[in-house]
Amino acid sequence: MLDSLARLGRVGLAMLASLGRAHLLLISILRGLPSMLVRPRLLLVQIYGVGVLSLLIIVVSGLFVGMVLGLQGYYVLSQFGAAESLGVMVAASLVRELGPVVTALLFAGRAGSALTAEIGLMKATEQLSGLEMMAVDPVKRVLTPRFFAGLISMPLLAALFSAIGVIGGWFVGVGLLGIDDGAFWGQMQNKIDFDEDLVNGVIKSLAFGLVVTWIALYEGYDATPTSAGVSRATTRTVVQSALAILGLDFILTALMFGG
């Protein structure tokens, strides 16, 4: 009994310590911003790795999610004789929810896991210590550009996901099921609000981008420098990112649309 209490306490303390380290790391990452701005090339290379290389999976997933939304939405809406509103429904669900959330989940699996594995292996192969010994701060040099690359890429990818999704929904609704083209786009233009929908969607995707990239970098930097350690860290990145995205989405949705 006392033993299990003690163990619980130890686990709790370890978690708090880890949370503390994660925040300290975030502060050091942000401190690297000025030196990164002097050398934008470092950032561009990472935007390519983190963002551009995630394009394919985002585009394909966006298209299919939009098409499924078109089918399901048509089925429900036509029962109420409101099939013309399909455009609004598809666009609103994508921009408010599915765009940011699904993109973030895919982003965690595609880019987040890759970041953790890369940083963890750099640690295991002493590349990070090597940088330290060359008087180059590994946090500023390696982590900061990756962090901002994630932060910048995520909203762009989410926007792309939503845009492609709307096209998928249009293809199914207008192209296959014969909804009026003008009604599809017209209602969407009327009902989708810039602040309410678009801005909130962008805020969500920024928040998810921050959390996913932060988790990925921290797990890699804090990994036990062995192959088993790096593999465990990569798994943790994907699991924790998914939980964080869904939890954060609920909180943000409640704040944005709840009242």
């Binding site: 192969t125 002493e126 590349q127």
Partner: peptide
Amino acid sequence: LFQSGALLT
């Protein structure tokens, strides 16, 4: 000089 070399891969 690190035991492993520690080159940037």
